[in-house]
């Protein structure tokens, strides 16, 4: 497993894409830091990067990488290695390299310019989102043989989670605003990893506004560390479940 992981990481490094990604994040973060002097605003700008750019790049790169290393996977499977090991080493290699690129790209400027507590959450959320979308990319990839189709599916995932879903929730809220919606909206948020990441950050950046809720359940959720823990837990499920299904499909798949 470790050996395979090493080779997979080596493969990724050779494509230089993660280095490019790292460089892009580094530049963007430096730019944001030099434009804004208020740390609160820096976190906000970075939040937009984390919520929009990170999922997109992760999901597209992971998909492309899966197809690019298709032959490598086939070769490995011809050896006496089990499928789980091959698959997991691949997905871990992608996940680790993307997370490291992200942590470096955002984290290094933070170390230089300084940050605040909310930025630690930002790093955490970014890494979690990288892993979630890597998992989703692999799920989409194992479902189809066609690379173009897979990229199409993954882009759909991205558009859906970053944009369409929130539109639907907003619509729901508007239509049913006569009803007590607190718990329903919270449940809906749980069904979208991007929203979960956003809510974790909201609890850092906008806790004063969130405390304006009348519902006791909301107060409880937002007013303590519990909300962050629950959201992080569900986000973790968002990593594990797609990977589990992808693995299941991959194991039975006729390559």
């Amino acid at each position: 497993m470790l050996k395979l992981l090493k080779y997979s990481l080596y493969n990724i490094l050779r494509t230089r894409f993660t280095l490019l990604y790292f460089g892009f994040l580094l530049l963007a973060t430096f730019a944001i830091y030099s434009l804004d002097h208020d740390l609160a605003r820096v976190s906000l700008s970075l939040l937009n990067v984390v919520l929009l750019v990170v999922p997109l790049i992760c999901i597209v790169f992971a998909t492309v990488h899966f197809y690019n290393s298709y032959e490598f996977i086939e070769l490995m499977l011809a050896q006496p290695v089990n499928r789980t090991t091959v698959f997991m080493s691949q997905i871990l290699a992608v996940g680790i390299s993307l997370s490291l690129a992200f942590m470096g790209g955002i984290g290094i400027p933070m170390l230089i310019y300084g940050g605040e507590a909310s930025m630690i959450y930002l790093l955490f959320v970014g890494v979690m989102l990288s892993l979630v979308f890597t998992g989703l990319a692999y799920l989409a990839s194992v479902m189809t043989r066609d690379k173009a189709k897979a990229i199409g599916i993954t882009l759909l995932f991205w558009v859906f989670f970053s944009l369409i879903y929130d539109g639907l929730v907003l619509f729901m809220i508007y239509v049913f605003y006569d009803y007590p919606l607190e718990n329903a909206t919270l449940a809906m948020v749980m069904l979208n990893p991007v929203d979960l990441a956003r809510v974790i950050m909201l609890m850092q950046l906008d806790v004063s506004a969130l405390m304006g809720f009348t519902g006791a359940f909301f107060q409880n959720f937002f007013g303590s560390i519990r909300g962050t823990l629950i959201s992080s837990g569900v986000l973790l499920l968002w990593i594990l479940i797609p990977v589990y299904f992808a693995l299941r499909v991959f194991k039975r798949k006729d390559l």
Partner: peptide, 16 residues
């Protein structure tokens, strides 16, 4: 102001 629970979508791309 009208629908307090809508705050949960604050800072989403859609709302921005």
């Amino acid at each position: 102001e009208r629908i307090p629970s809508a705050i949960i979508l604050w800072r989403s791309f859609m709302v921005s």
